[in-house]
Amino acid sequence: MSDVHLKIEEIRKRKGVTKSHIARYCDRTPQWYSKVSKGEITLDVITLQLIADALEVDVVNFFNSKLSVTFNLKQKQVI
Rank of each mutant, 00 (worst) to 15 (best):
S2E: 14
S2V: 13
D3R: 09
V4T: 12
H5Y: 15
H5F: 15
K7S: 09
K7H: 03
I8Q: 05
I8M: 10
I8R: 01
E9V: 03
E9N: 15
E9K: 11
E10C: 00
I11P: 00
R12W: 06
R12Q: 01
K13N: 03
R14V: 03
R14L: 09
K15Y: 00
G16M: 05
G16T: 09
V17A: 06
V17E: 00
T18I: 01
T18L: 04
T18S: 15
S20M: 10
S20F: 10
H21R: 13
H21V: 09
I22L: 10
Y25I: 00
Y25F: 15
Y25E: 00
C26H: 00
C26K: 01
D27V: 04
D27K: 15
D27L: 13
R28Y: 08
R28E: 13
T29I: 05
P30M: 07
P30E: 11
Q31S: 15
Y33G: 09
S34M: 13
V36F: 08
V36D: 06
S37T: 09
G39T: 04
G39I: 01
G39A: 02
E40Q: 15
E40L: 14
V45E: 10
T47R: 08
T47S: 02
T47K: 06
L48G: 01
Q49E: 12
A54W: 09
L55I: 07
E56S: 13
V59I: 15
V60P: 00
N61E: 15
N64Y: 04
N64P: 10
S65M: 07
S65P: 13
K66V: 12
L67M: 11
L67C: 07
S68R: 15
S68A: 14
T70L: 14
N72E: 14
L73Y: 10
Q75C: 08
K76G: 07
Q77P: 01
Q77F: 06
Q77L: 12
V78F: 07
V78H: 10
I79M: 12
